[in-house]
Design a protein around this nucleic acid. Structure first.
Lengths: 226, 226
DNA sequence: CCGTTGCTTCGATCACGGTCGAAGTGTCGG
DNA sequence: CCGACACTTCGACCGTGATCGAAGCAACGG
């Protein structure tokens, strides 16, 4: 029993479907119409593509009144998209609107459930510099001597260790450098959002660093110039 | 600057190209003609596909006399294919020849440079049972108290820690359970091949467990019924 | 109840890309 | 130097699948 790599890849290999999956990478559910606009296709076309993604098991849907909410089927799918992104060619956005959004996402965005972009990489670097995390092989981080101080300053109680990977590097495909993923990365993203240090930019994965976030990150992590 | 997921996926999304990439997953270089037979297409068609894979940066080629040797471009590509395999649908091979090969690969094969299949999972389980390795988060293994005994019995001197991940689980897509990858996994595969405990099956990723391998694995790791 | 909204199904159109055989280019062996 | 071999390029053919508008189905709101 083998797997059909070509079929798996083909499910992603259409520009409209890839745009939809990309939009779903922040983990938030979206309606069919929203995804149609995201992919810049007619609702009928989007419906066609979503049916195919459902069939391939890449997304799941649940009825929500008179609309239907689509989500990525699970972390496996997000991981596959992330690793695929590493070997995918860069693309220049075609419209000004998409260009500005791409710029914003490059600066700061969520990647499934943790911080990415320049912000994500900077936070990861700062945690390493403070000894809050230390490399543990090439595929994991461990907590370091500065963990309590740094995470205390961020107002994070360390998440319990569970089935999920605790702290691992995730190669950031805009920066080509690692940022922090795993349960710890998700806890950090939750904390800075809850504190109002960063705010979601409606309709995108982009994040905006607020004024209080700028000063908070500076005092907690010596992070400057964001 | 974003990446074009659709383009990356499209490079893999053809049955012939997927078959070629799959064949290259064991890390060994192959000629264009060999890959054409692997994918069951005419040489001209294979050439067309290989040109596209080159263009996408998924494979690299070096002249070798009057033939050209193709290899995967790097570990990133192998990782992308592995994670993509996890979300790809199962496929029933169409010919008897391919069926028997698939059966053989299910039993024992190489995955890039380490052991996979039933054998790979069994070895990983045995190492865990012997305390030679212990889980260290969900993305890594650490050496355990039984490491010296087990790896000594296998005739392996532990590889030096380097840039490469040392010991990590790799989800086996036939068994749906993890086997051992990383520098340590590669060292194990090297050792059992060098000792003649397993032999490569010419032209495939499949491995055959030899009689001496059966008794050797039994005494070294209490592995039975292979 | 009926109109509006959100989504899907249907039917027709069209273009992209996979396929092959034949011919062209380069490398090895006699 | 000439034939054989490995691979690539070229040209023509064809099928799959992406696309849209129009029409068909629910679900909510007045």
């Amino acid at each position: 029993m083998h797997v059909d790599l070509a079929a798996g890849a083909a499910a992603i290999a259409d520009p409209a479907r890839a745009a939809m999956l990309d939009a779903l990478l922040d983990g938030a559910p979206r309606s069919a119409g929203s995804l149609a606009r995201e992919a810049d296709v007619a609702p009928s076309t989007a419906s066609h593509h979503l049916a195919r993604l459902l069939d391939a098991g890449l997304v799941v849907v649940e009825p929500d009144g008179r609309r239907r909410a689509y989500r990525l089927a699970g972390p496996d799918v997000a991981r596959a998209l992330e690793t695929l992104a590493v070997i995918s060619p860069p693309s220049a956005p075609r419209t000004l609107r998409r260009h500005t959004r791409a710029e914003a996402e490059r600066a700061a965005r969520t990647c499934y459930d943790h911080l990415a972009g320049v912000l994500g990489v900077a936070v990861c670097d700062a945690l390493l510099a403070a000894g809050a995390i230390v490399p543990d092989g090439e595929r994991a981080y461990a907590l370091g001597p500065g963990a309590d101080a740094a995470f205390g300053a961020l107002g994070i109680d360390l998440p319990a260790r569970g089935r999920r990977a605790y702290a691992r590097p995730c190669l950031d495909w805009t920066e080509r450098r690692p940022h922090l993923a795993g349960a710890l990365g998700a806890a950090i993203a939750d904390a800075v959002l809850a504190r109002g240090w960063v705010a979601r930019v409606r309709g995108t994965r982009a994040l905006r660093v607020t004024d209080s976030g700028r000063s908070g990150l500076r005092s907690a992590l010596s992070l400057d110039a964001l």
